[in-house]
Design a protein around this nucleic acid. Sequence first.
DNA 1: GTCTTATGAATGCGTATTCATTCATTTTTC
DNA 2: GAAAAATGAATGAATACGCATTCATAAGAC
Lengths: 195, 195
Amino acid sequence: MRTSDKHTKIIEAAITVFARKGFFSARISDIAKEAQVADGTIYLYFNNKYDILISLFEEEIGKIILEVKLLMEKESDPRRMLQIFALHHMQLMEEKRELAEVLQMELRQSNKFMKEYRNTKFIEYVDVVSAIVHKGQEEGVFRKSLLPGVFKRAFFGALDETSRLWVLSPDHNYTIAEAAQQISDIFISGIMTDS
Amino acid sequence: MRTSDKHTKIIEAAITVFARKGFFSARISDIAKEAQVADGTIYLYFNNKYDILISLFEEEIGKIILEVKLLMEKESDPRRMLQIFALHHMQLMEEKRELAEVLQMELRQSNKFMKEYRNTKFIEYVDVVSAIVHKGQEEGVFRKSLLPGVFKRAFFGALDETSRLWVLSPDHNYTIAEAAQQISDIFISGIMTDS
DNA sequence: GTCTTATGAATGCGTATTCATTCATTTTTC
DNA sequence: GAAAAATGAATGAATACGCATTCATAAGAC
């Protein structure tokens, strides 16, 4: 078995266990069991428990950013770009539930217990939205009076909270795609120049 | 010193300490120190560490709900109600930073480590928004095609994420009131019937 | 036969919780 | 009204235990 396989197996196991129990309640032995390795093996690939969480963030958000930037390159209409971002974000949360839970819960409070860790990757992801807003304003499609910094947070927050609760609650009277559509509709008609 | 004073002092100390360190990294002795009582005294008022957190949620969100429902009763225009809700929510986060941090961070992941705890108070708060949407739809001011369940989450998520980052980042190029205004503007123009 | 990778029992640290003790206040007794 | 007895709130050192991390040993690779 190659080295990289174990690294990946442990990360994947950690996603599952952190999603289920949360970072603090998760035991190293839980992750080891889930990854089918010995407890000690984990320390051959990671320095400590925090290191697993940080590696997980960096690697997984890295992949997501690559994906979304690729999608954005294929589109030029800012309105369509917002729609695509929304749909892609929500689908991601649906397809990778466990990862979504870890990112939503643990990522945000990580700066509480890991003082030194600044999550630049996360900022980079959300800044994809402000870039779209900026582009739309340049092109005169979006109102100049909007603050891109407010918009990106509001838009991201709307998507994230909606998908978070969609994943949590067992019964839904709407699909992920419908929710993404409604949210991007609201925001798009909310930021268009009056014409 | 009356009994109730100690209870309150401990809750207030817990808000400060949980905000600073997060629930798990917070030590009972930290809370005791902050509240200027002995470690053991805390166990005269609360069963355990979790109980402090739960009591804190129940009591503080209870107050917030009372406040916001009172505000809503004074207004009848659904658009104005959304504006007021937005502004009130954001101001709350600004005025009570520490409480805001605890609610935003710990409340959400509490169901991870406290299986049995269902946060009905939080749901009640967010449902204030869906009630407004419903009212607006009844009166024909808001589009019927919107799902109140999606809207409430999107609206709340937008407010919450924006205020969360406003509180975290040291420099702002906009005020809380401006952000609240922009967000309610976006959502209101996004859900109006086309007329 | 050496070097690498993996194991999991043993270690030790950190901290939630307990509980014997203190002490201020209230109640009872004469 | 003074002395004695009872109360229970508050204390904080001691306890107990969960779990991250280590490391002596084993298994596998070449």
